[in-house]
Design a protein around this nucleic acid. Sequence first.
DNA 1: TTGTACGCGTTATCAC
DNA 2: GTGATAACGCGTACAA
Lengths: 340, 340
Amino acid sequence: MGIMSTIRDVARIAEVSTATVSRVINSPEKVSRETRENVYQAMRLCHYTYNALARGFATRRSHSIGLIIPTITNPIFAESTRGIQDVADEYGYHVIIGNSDYQYKQEERLVAVLRERQVEGFMITTTDLRGKVISSLLHERFPLVLLYSTVRKGGISAVGVDNFKGGFRATEHLVSRGHRRIGMLAGKFSFSDRSYHRWYGYRNCLKKYGISYDPQLVVQSDYSLASGRNGAVRLMNLNNPPTAIFCANDYIALGAMEGARQMGLSLPDDLSIVGFDGIKIGSFITPNLTTILQPAYEMGKVGTQVLLNQIQQKIKKPVHILLETQLIERQSTTRPKASH
Amino acid sequence: MGIMSTIRDVARIAEVSTATVSRVINSPEKVSRETRENVYQAMRLCHYTYNALARGFATRRSHSIGLIIPTITNPIFAESTRGIQDVADEYGYHVIIGNSDYQYKQEERLVAVLRERQVEGFMITTTDLRGKVISSLLHERFPLVLLYSTVRKGGISAVGVDNFKGGFRATEHLVSRGHRRIGMLAGKFSFSDRSYHRWYGYRNCLKKYGISYDPQLVVQSDYSLASGRNGAVRLMNLNNPPTAIFCANDYIALGAMEGARQMGLSLPDDLSIVGFDGIKIGSFITPNLTTILQPAYEMGKVGTQVLLNQIQQKIKKPVHILLETQLIERQSTTRPKASH
DNA sequence: TTGTACGCGTTATCAC
DNA sequence: GTGATAACGCGTACAA
């Protein structure tokens, strides 16, 4: 590592002032060609490397944003995170990630830590839309964009999808295939508004088509493969099991498929399954997973653009963007074997 | 946002010096209970929040480490990244991620950018073990840990797995099942030493069992689902197609499985497939994927511990750790249909 | 136990 | 076009 050289060292060697060195770095055109070359030379001589942290300190801009997600290990969040990183990188920002594991306490802690680190704004996939974390950020007018949530109005900017509509369409797709007994493996409502909205779409769809709601057919679970497997087993062991299941995310859906198979069921004939997310792997398994596609990468990109605009005060008012989800009909859904 | 208050403000309100406030923050036990309470009170009064960036500037420690991986969207890297984040978090560090997309130029750029940001060390899953990026870091004795590579000696610390052995065992497993015509969907050698080592293990295993090496049976491809599908189709369209394929990672393997199915082949009877990684999804598809498990999360954790020790100068000498891979025999491999 | 004074590397505001 | 110098918020000798 050794000693870092500073603009002072460079200035001394090039026999100019530190101000000039700084100018060479930040606006070379304001410096005469001669001194400029001179300074570059000096930089090379003492192996100068720019200290972006010191700049941040002087300008009071960290050029970093905080990102809080449930966990980077879920491919859907990895996808949106990549979108965020790509845009941030483009604008000279970097991203500090915090994994909340769907726990509000963690979310709270992470926000505090990242604020100490002087992030200029937050992108949050929150566990509690009405919690204090969000409201106090809002109250301070701290730059903030919510990701994945369905938010149409209010003081908080959000880039998400219509989770209600997504849940509705997933269910409607099953109904249109002739299913009447439709289960749902829902994410825990305590995890987020998204879990609730997807379920609410499911429920409203049933109502619209005159199918009575049976609480037995709804299981709240973790957003994990294992939970999906367990949930499916539980539903299919009911006296009157469903002929189709809507799963709140693709991980649950893939788990459910495996659970059903382990019970000796054949897919999709014995059981139709719809997921939610549209992770890539879904089209690489058999049967290919029918799902509601969220444009995650795009969401990350758009969200970051909104946040950066907000940080640079280019926009003052909150913006609410709902990206379109898309029903991808693949092979995991079909007509029920014995539609009565 | 409003004006941030500093320790000066707190000092003024509490009628103490800034040094005392600083002490209250960093070593409260060195301050009398009375003044301490007094200071806390003042902090609350002016909504003081600690500025970790300023501390970093003053102490010349950013408390951040740089992480360079091919892409966070590959679950195996998401997994190790989570391990890194968890340990870093525990020690008050944060992680800045750079995605190289397996491109050396990107890797080079990212290292430069992160160095400007004063990261205290790097964890790199490198594209080129012998490239200048690594060697100059090493030359400067800049804290650095290589991840995923097979490195047994030399000046660079590394936490990885024995990719050669992994490739060997994957192939040997197929041989033990009676396969003689074994293809490989290898990662591009230009991507990394890991690609090469896995292939080298494959090749040596063939040799050991007296199976002649047929270049036709080896395809170098991207580490992606789509490439796996295409590669499998290409191999299975050969005049004399393989009865089994060893895939350089699980994504390629899952893609290959789907490609084979699309050709009307039935798995595993018509084609056995082994992957490499052990991503979770592998045990949730049918047939479950036989694979070489890398302990990714663990690798991230251990790697970070090594790096932090190195940063804190607790260790001076490079350490080389090879974690054990494990052959997970599942359903995607069986005996060839017509072993001749 | 507490206070004073300076340094960290850069930017920004004046002068010249 | 260039230079001198005061911030920026905190840590830390050293002194009291």
